[in-house]
Computed example of a mutant assay.
Amino acid sequence: MNINQSELEQKLRDATQPGTIVTLTLEEAAQAGLYPEDAMSEEDALESSLREANEEGDGNGETI
């Protein structure tokens, strides 16, 4: 998709105005350096940490 740079710049200026809703395509968002949030949730991070701790145990199913 060909992104019109001046239109994108106008959308980004509009987005700085309180109460304004601006819709961007995925391509426009990527061009502007905006990305969807893909970080782990706090719950997922805790679960992952606990799983890693158990895998690093002493081989008897107990963590060291």
Rank of each mutant, 00 (worst) to 15 (best):
G59V: 03
G59F: 03
I3H: 04
I64M: 06
T25M: 10
S6H: 06
A39K: 09
L50H: 02
I3C: 10
A32P: 01
Q5A: 15
S49E: 08
A53Q: 06
L26N: 13
E43D: 05
A29E: 01
L12N: 02
E43A: 07
R51N: 04
S41I: 10
A30C: 10
A45I: 06
E37S: 15
K11R: 08
L50S: 01
L26Q: 11
E37T: 13
E55Q: 13
T23A: 14
Q5R: 13
E52I: 08
A45C: 06
N54K: 09
G19L: 04
E47L: 13
G57T: 02
Q31H: 10
L12I: 06
D58L: 10
I3K: 04
T16H: 00
E47C: 07
K11Y: 01
A15E: 02
E55N: 11
E9K: 12
E37H: 14
Y35D: 12
N60D: 05
G57Q: 02
A30D: 13
L24K: 01
S49L: 15
L24H: 00
Q17G: 02
M1Y: 10
A53T: 06
L34S: 05
I21R: 08
S49Q: 08
D44L: 14
Q17C: 05
E27Y: 05
M1Q: 11
Q5E: 11
E52W: 06
Q10H: 07
S49M: 12
